[in-house]
Design a protein around this nucleic acid. Structure first.
Lengths: 194, 194
DNA sequence: GCATTCTCTTTACATAGGATAAGAAAAACG
DNA sequence: CGTTTTTCTTATCCTATGTAAAGAGAATGC
């Protein structure tokens, strides 16, 4: 007995949600398409909504010393948005851009906050979601601290994040690994010669 | 009207807690001293409890290729523990060691889970705490991806994390910055000559 | 279908950081 | 105290990555 809505199935991977609780969320959802190179949020803007990707892919980057540093990618069936700006109420330091035409369900963060307040199940969802977010960030940070760029690349090849290799331009992957595109090209050559 | 218990004050920075809710937590607490070089959790062990540091300092490291890689420090008035192992139920990959004799209040993670289940305020606390944890990790990750080791060091000097510089041996700070102690020593020399 | 643009690779050069080892300084300890 | 151990610095050498520029290849658009 799988629930029919893809977002509900996603949410219920974290914690079960009653029909009543789900109805509150469903009322918040709007479908939107973001065209390639357009943005869900730009640096300096206030984070007001989160989204769930139905199809497409997005990248998330910071601008530092005038350069775009891509730090994360999002694909279909995942939640995306300027969490930090939403949580802190400060202007977003990051930009989230569609890498291809991307179809999303969006909902306002204030709506999610009301769900948190109204229902213990939603509060729990928020906690568990954030726990998994933190685990992912911790793993990423430890990889950056302990592994060489080459190790990080080979690990990406053999991980459950193959999608990144398959669908994302190398310049952005290089950023994600903490190196330049030139260096990634060299690493790829080295590996292909082994 | 500040609450008298330091842990309660810490928790109420995130969300208010009623006397009743606080009483449930207080019943879980045990005071413990961990001597210098002893560990709260070792790699391979199951994470079963979290702690709040009353005095002292601890470091948190992963063992990778036979070397200890210190990735975080904890000081008085902060929560510490093998969160990830507690959350996932998997053996801990990290070790948390006291850098000096450290006095803690510890509580079992299963107890916290019961608080989550029994009270919406505790569930909210869990969410908000984890949100701040995630924000800290994101900032750390972005710094590792976008800044040079020298920039990371100078930023540490001028941040609210000065405690790290003041109280932690340089070999561990080097790890935290993602470089070797030798390299940190060179960076310090470079900076002192400017 | 041709031209333009974007992406990836390659080269040459400069440099910061890694590895190792040895010495200096500081801390721990009996 | 004085000894031992640990921590930090310095020196040498080496290598991977950064930068810049040019060329090859792919994708895009008119």
């Amino acid at each position: 007995m799988t629930s029919s809505h893809p977002l509900r199935r996603h949410i219920e991977q974290f914690t079960p949600i009653s029909d009543e609780d789900w109805a509150m969320m469903e009322a918040l959802l709007t479908e939107r398409t973001i065209r390639k190179h357009e943005c869900m949020i730009r640096e300096g803007g206030m984070g007001r909504e989160l989204g769930y990707i139905l199809e497409g892919e997005m990248r998330h980057y910071y601008t530092y010393h005038g350069e775009e540093k891509t730090t994360y990618f999002y694909f279909e069936n995942s939640l995306v948005g300027p969490y930090i700006s939403c949580i802190t109420g400060q202007p977003s330091q990051l930009t989230i851009e569609a890498l291809s035409d991307t179809k999303l369900l969006v909902f306002p963060y204030t709506g999610l906050q009301k769900l948190y307040a109204q229902s213990k199940a939603w509060e729990r969802f928020g906690r568990v979601l954030t726990e998994y977010l933190a685990i992912g960030l911790e793993e990423r940070m430890v990889g950056l601290l302990t592994q060489s760029p080459e190790e990080r690349y080979t690990q990406l090849l053999s991980s459950n994040k193959k999608k990144i290799i398959e669908r994302i331009p190398q310049q952005h992957i290089a950023n994600y690994l903490g190196i330049t595109p030139v260096s990634l090209s060299r690493i790829r050559k080295r590996l292909s010669e082994k």
